[in-house]
Each structure stands twice: as C-alpha cells, then as structure tokens.
Design a protein around this nucleic acid. Sequence first.
DNA 1: GCGTATTACCTAAGACTCCAATGTATTGAA
DNA 2: TTCAATACATTGGAGTCTTAGGTAATACGC
Lengths: 112, 112
Amino acid sequence: MHSPELLKGTLQTIILKLLADHGKMYGYEITQKVRDLSDESLQLTEGSLYPTLHKLEAQGLLKTKKISLGKRVRKYYFLTSIGQNTAIKKVEDFEAFIKTMFRVLQISPQSI
Amino acid sequence: MHSPELLKGTLQTIILKLLADHGKMYGYEITQKVRDLSDESLQLTEGSLYPTLHKLEAQGLLKTKKISLGKRVRKYYFLTSIGQNTAIKKVEDFEAFIKTMFRVLQISPQSI
DNA sequence: GCGTATTACCTAAGACTCCAATGTATTGAA
DNA sequence: TTCAATACATTGGAGTCTTAGGTAATACGC
C-alpha cells in the first residue's frame, strides 16, 4: 500500500482513463480494476469513488445507464465525448506533472 | 502550470528532498528553488510551505537555526537524521507510486 | 530621498477532497 | 442457511492546501 495521500488529485484521472480504455463500467467493477491493475497497492474505496463519479456526471463528463439483471439493477458509467477529451488531457497533465516532479526530486526517468 | 490538485500529497516529499540535496535552506529559498527546478510550473506558496515546515519540525524531521543578517533574521531549516531517512523513504514511495500509476493508466515509462 | 519590487517571515479562515463508517440488498457457494 | 462477495450509495469528519492577509527589511531606479 502506498502512502494514501499521493493518490489525492489522481482519482478523476484514474476513473476517466479506465472508462476511456474499457468503455462502460459499473462502480464495483472500477474498484476491482484499480485493485487488479495496481497489484492491490491502490485501494479505491466506495466512499471516494461514488462522490467522484457523481461529480464527473454533474460536469457532463460521463453519463449513466441502468441495466437490469434479474432483481439487481446495475448502473453503468460511460464517457461523453467531452469526457473522452478530458480523459486524454488529464493523462497528459499527469505525465507532464511527473516529468516536472522528476526534475524537482532529481529522479532519473530510467529508474522507473 | 499544472493542475494544482496533483501537487497534493507531494509537498512533504519535495521539501524533504530539497533539504536533503541542499543542506540548510530558508523558506523563501525553498519556494524559489521549486520554482526554478520546475520551470515555474510548480508554485509552492508560503501559505502551504510554512505550515508544512512547522509540521515537519514538530515531527522531529527537521530543525531550525536563526542567522542574523544585519537587522533581518533568516531562519534556516535543516534535516535531522530521522528527517534524512524519511526523505529517502518518501522519494522511494513516490517512485513506487508512479510505477503503479503508470500501470493503472497504461502509460509506457518510455514516454517520459 | 521616495516609491516600488523583492526578499523574508508568518497566520487564519475556509474550500475542497478524500476516507472511514455505515446502510441496504442480491447472489453464489459451502 | 449462513457467510462471503457483489453492488449500490450517503454522511460526517479529517486533513491538506489555497486565498488572503499581515509585518518588516532591503535593493533599485529615478
């Protein structure tokens, strides 16, 4: 587990990129995907996931669609076209930020 | 300028690493160093710097020494031995976090 | 000698983001 | 049938940073 405070600020980027890569996903699926891709070192809890999803929806970056599976209703989230552009932009911002941080912290990019 | 929210969680790491690399520094000097190293894309404001410095001091990671320059008193901050270990550890944590994020965001390390 | 920019210290109030805890309900496996 | 996993979500609060403000010395151009 990483120091959790580093995750701050990257949540929206992670969610948008996952949706960009995988099309529509439901909340629980997103938490599991992050868990798997990060080898369990990133823990995306529901308490932070759902408020963020709702916020992104309010901003028009994603939409939802409810699918019935027997009695259970599953809620899928997927990007709008604005959301797709934003996903790309956020990832680029993140990369630029990393480059800057490497310079400030004197980390050689080869080391990662 | 990067989206400021990415900076969250990295402040302590930046300060500790700068002090580890440059020995003793005073507050204003730290803000300028960050500004220079980041080509002005990271803005470390005093409102976040000083509270963080004081917090690190309270945790025993750094100590201070006042130097008189005429009428002006300059306050230098420098790492304790615990602080030096912590600086190394924080940078390692950051590197590990980046590796994880690259996997989650499907970013190739070569791209940076 | 005067005004302004820069150097240099710092605090306080609040915004914002995230996390822990909690709640509900369905499904599947033992 | 009971427990773990799946699946949705909210709420209260902790923590972190930003905005804005405050003080004062020094350097520089005019």
